[in-house]
Amino acid sequence: MAEGNQSTVTEFILTGLTNKPELQLPLFLLFLGIYLFTELGNLGMVILISISSHLHTPMYFFLSSLSFIDLCYSTVIIPKMLVNFVTEKNIISYPECMTQLYCFLVLVISECYMLSAMAYDRYVAICNPLRYNVTMSYQVCLWMIGGVYCIGLIEATLHTVCMLRVLFCKANVVNHFFCDLLPLLQLACSSTFVNEVVLLCFSTFNFCVPMLTILSSYSFIIARILRIKSTESRFKAFSTCSSHFTSVAVFFGSLGFMYFQPSSVSSEDQGKVSSVFYTTVVPMLNPLIYSLRNKDVKVALNKLLRKKTFHM
Rank of each mutant, 00 (worst) to 15 (best):
Thr157Asp: 03
Ser239Asn: 13
Gly33Ala: 08
Thr15Trp: 04
Phe235Glu: 14
Val108Arg: 01
Asn302Trp: 13
Gly271Cys: 02
Thr157His: 09
Leu82Thr: 06
Thr231His: 09
Ser254Leu: 03
Ile69Gly: 05
Ile69Asn: 04
Leu200Glu: 05
Phe12Tyr: 01
Phe28Cys: 08
Val83Tyr: 08
Leu187Arg: 00
Val166Met: 03
Pro79Phe: 11
Thr87Lys: 13
Met59Asn: 07
Ser52Glu: 12
Cys189Ile: 04
Cys97Ser: 08
Ser110Tyr: 00
Arg131Tyr: 11
Glu22Leu: 11
Cys141Asn: 10
Ser274Tyr: 01
Phe85Glu: 01
Phe62Ile: 13
Leu226Pro: 00
Phe252Ile: 02
Met136Ser: 03
Val161Pro: 01
Ala237Asp: 05
Leu130Trp: 10
Leu14Gly: 00
Phe238Tyr: 14
Phe238His: 06
Ser242Asn: 10
Glu196Ser: 11
Arg122Trp: 05
Gln139Asp: 13
Ile145Gly: 00
Cys112Tyr: 03
Thr10Ala: 12
Leu25Thr: 14
Thr240His: 08
Cys112Thr: 04
Gly256Met: 04
Cys179Ile: 01
Leu185Gln: 07
Tyr132Leu: 05
Lys236Pro: 02
Phe310Ile: 13
Ala117Asp: 00
His311Gly: 04
Ala249Ile: 09
Leu66Thr: 06
Asp269Gln: 13
Lys272Thr: 01
Ala156Asp: 01
Leu23Cys: 08
Leu130Glu: 14
Arg234Ala: 06
Phe62Asp: 06
Leu301Gly: 04
Ala2Asn: 14
Ile151Tyr: 00
Asp70Tyr: 11
Phe310Trp: 13
Val198Cys: 07
Gln24Asn: 10
Ser110Trp: 01
Thr279Val: 07
Ser50Gly: 10
His311Arg: 15
Pro129Lys: 11
Ser65Ala: 15
Thr87Ala: 03
Ser275Ile: 00
Ser242Gln: 10
Ala117Tyr: 00
Ser274Met: 01
Lys20Tyr: 09
Phe220Pro: 02
Ile77Asp: 04
Gln186Met: 12
Pro287Asn: 06
Leu82Ile: 08
Asn90Cys: 11
Leu215Asn: 10
Arg234Tyr: 02
Met118Trp: 02
Asn84Tyr: 06
Leu63Phe: 14
Asn90Asp: 03
Ala171Ile: 04
Arg165Gly: 05
Lys303Leu: 14
Tyr123Lys: 09
Leu32Asp: 01
Ser275Lys: 07
Ile91Arg: 11
Ser93Met: 06
Thr87Phe: 07
Leu185Asn: 10
Pro262Ala: 13
Cys179Thr: 02
Ser275Met: 09
